[in-house]
């Protein structure tokens, strides 16, 4: 079947198999920031945006993005560098494999929340697993990024 979509503001028209997953579609087009971690919709590594909303690309058929706009981390390079700097200064990008999916969701959270509390952050990112960090360094980095020192430090 043929689909037309925009990925990172560039138009793609492709013939695809009906059962092709979005993660395999975008990776085959060279957007390798999108990672597969769990096969079971649990880890958040494959997070991309479809029409600005975060989705798990391992659990969405490529056919569903027909006439939609997909964003991967490659399309958000400047924003990724900004968030990434906060992660890096806390050592929260240890192996780095979960960083792209996490940053996609941090940026999505930023669009939804002006001043997220610690609980907001924990709830929003509950679907982004990391095996290296234990999450403390990520939480510090995210709070620094939101410049929330002193505003939301309960339960940290």
């Amino acid at each position: 079947m043929q689909i037309t979509c925009r990925i990172n503001k560039r138009e793609f028209i492709r013939d695809i198999e009906p059962d092709l997953l979005l993660i395999d579609f975008v990776r085959s087009l060279g957007f390798k920031s999108v990672k597969r971690g769990c096969d079971t919709s649990n880890c958040g590594l494959c997070t991309v945006w479809v029409d600005e909303k975060p989705v798990l690309s391992c659990s969405v058929l490529a056919a569903r993005v027909n006439h939609k706009a997909v964003t991967t981390l490659e399309g958000l390079e400047e924003e990724a560098k900004e968030v990434g700097w906060f992660l890096a200064t806390q050592g929260a990008e240890q192996c780095g494999f979960c960083s792209p999916g996490l940053i996609m969701n941090i940026l999505a959270m930023k669009a939804e929340f002006k001043n997220p509390t610690t609980e907001d952050i924990k709830q929003y990112l509950a679907g982004n697993l990391c095996r290296c960090s234990g999450y403390e360094s990520q939480l510090r980095a995210i709070k620094n990024y939101f410049d929330l020192q002193g505003v939301a430090h309960e339960n940290c």
Partner: peptide, 21 residues
């Protein structure tokens, strides 16, 4: 002093640096 890893920016911007990439 904290030291940023030399590959930090490649990792956080999702550059193709892993085996399958």
């Amino acid at each position: 002093q904290g030291i940023e890893k030399i590959d930090a920016m490649a990792l956080v911007t999702g550059k193709p640096v892993y085996t399958d990439d």
